[in-house]
Design a protein around this nucleic acid. Structure first.
Lengths: 327, 327
DNA sequence: TTGAAAGCGCTAACAG
DNA sequence: CTGTTAGCGCTTTCAA
């Protein structure tokens, strides 16, 4: 049988009111009875029942973290940092994954609300006014990461547009003249929120336009990208570089091109984006753009904590060019 | 103001009993009133309050996942698979990280119990009868992963001992005669549960003993392992191989030794353990032992679900030698 | 200083 | 078919 405050009250011959006062050392109780209650609580291994408490306080001390992917290092790094920060603040974290499925993401959000979480941190894959309305109906503090949703909620992100601009500039300074952008299919699905990746493409385009001496923009996208990389490899010269929209893409490209016999650098320059932990083990070391991954997670948690306190903070995190051996 | 069953009842001019019947389409209600209730519930965006429900049903449909580390790919792969399987079964997952801190792990477990989770999946760092007793006191279904705790709870793992034996055997068949084991400090802290890693070392020792023609066992452990790798590199010949207790160690060794100018293979053979996803991007491809990582997570979830159903399943998952280019 | 009682939102048992 | 009520474990208010 479960041990409740009532059990303790009976055991000590007092009322549940006193038990509560003792347990939370609230005033209005004698040291003597308090000691007795605490002693028996300890002895019988009393454990408070948090859901019951939150039913009356209206606060669960839980936060829902929802991501559309968790298999890639980027996301697990963000989530880990989130959890860590939330734990420090005394919150418990639910984690849910939508697997890039818009309906599933809605269901996750809905579930979190039903679970009564105090707030939600989401790296969304949905977008649009409909979804915006839906999220608003959840009626609780939200923080968004990476893919922009609305100014209604704090948004934690790097300025991807200028980060990608800087990457192109960096490559140009290294002497590359033909800079190709490798990106996941942007408009594959109009329903999908590809903000983060679209901003990168936009930064790429702007850089190509505004920097002098560069060849016209070329964006490789779509599922046939390996074939396109192959064509690129054959037409490449030592002034050709590939700027990828993420490290994962860059690593795939690296694997593929190396296997095909391309020398990187030499035949082709290669640059990633994100600076995931995995890169620590990659040779040659990949040039990339550091996107403050862990900080993204911890800051998101902090933004939510701020929201709980009634403050709206929506930080843009810094990015840094990481000079690797692949350029 | 929050919309509750009571609100709905008032709005529809019925009792909460009828609302409940309608919401769960339980028998004993006319189609007409049911339709009316469901319609208004939909219209006003009624959302059930799960904690309140679980207060009466005694079941929260939540599961706690506790790992001592989440920063390495291995763990995030396991956790992801866990969550995925639990979600499919209609459970919500709390995730907590103890950061290898034994006290913190206890606190995590304690919190989970207070949160009222239906069950716990733990990749523990604690051990011993004291801890065993503590976990027992949580008084709910538990599943352990990787580090063995007690036969009281299902334990999901690979047979690390024989997996490591097989790895040595594989290296021996490849012609290696001097096989060195690189492992994290095993006895660094007597408090810590290093079962998984100890079993590997044991498998290594047994293999060295029982296979003919091999040099005496050498285990590199401790924080000075990079220096020791250096000594090893200098004394190595083409019949020397390093068998690491995890891929992460192997990748660190690969990075270090390559930087020092060692050819792998050639000067030294190198083999990892686990087969984490990261390896997909590593060149030369790392020889390793596949440890069914994702399956570990999903099976752990399934074991817990079985426990809920009153069945005790404690599976040993298969391992496979992955022949890479580093041997 | 202490006890009694109400109520959080929900389910379940019982009565009508 | 429908309404009323008790109670899950806890906090909080009000009386004593």
């Amino acid at each position: 049988m479960r041990i409740t405050t009532k059990t303790l009250a009976r055991m000590c011959g007092v009322s549940v009111g006193s038990v509560d006062r003792a347990l939370h050392n609230r005033p209005g109780i004698s040291e003597q009875t308090k000691a007795k209650i605490l002693k028996t609580a300890e002895a019988v291994g009393y454990r408070p029942h948090l859901p019951a408490r939150s039913l009356v306080t209206g606060k669960t001390n839980t936060v829902g973290i929802i991501v559309f992917d968790l298999s890639h290092t980027y996301f697990s790094q963000v989530v880990t940092a989130c959890i860590s920060r939330l734990t420090d603040a005394g919150y418990f974290a639910y984690v849910a994954v939508s697997n890039q499925h818009t309906d599933e993401e809605r269901r996750c959000l809905d579930n979190m609300a039903s679970l009564g979480v105090d707030g939600i941190i989401v790296l969304p894959i949905n977008k649009g006014t409909d979804f915006h309305q839906f999220v608003k109906s959840l009626n609780r503090p939200i923080v968004t990461i990476g893919n922009f949703l609305s100014r209604d909620w704090p948004f934690v992100s790097v300025d991807y547009e200028s980060a990608c601009f800087d990457a192109v500039e960096f490559l140009a300074m290294r002497g590359y003249r033909r800079i190709v952008h490798l990106s996941p299919p942007l408009a594959r699905n109009r329903e999908i929120n590809a903000y983060a990746v679209e901003r990168r493409a936009e930064g790429y385009r702007r850089a190509i336009r505004s920097l002098s001496g560069l060849e016209a923009p070329e964006i490789i996208t779509g599922s046939r990208y390996l074939d396109q990389l192959d064509e690129l490899r054959l037409s490449a010269n030592n002034a050709t570089a590939i700027l990828c929209s993420s490290d994962v893409y860059a690593l795939r490209a690296l694997t593929y091109l190396t296997k095909k016999g391309a020398r990187i650098p030499g035949d082709l320059g290669l640059m990633g984006f994100d600076n995931i932990e995995t890169l620590e083990y990659i040779h040659p070391s990949l040039a990339t753009v550091d996107c403050s991954i862990r900080e993204t997670g911890s800051r998101a948690a902090e933004c939510l904590l701020s929201e709980f306190a009634g403050e709206y903070v929506s930080p843009i995190l810094p990015h840094t060019i990481i000079e690797g051996e692949t350029v």
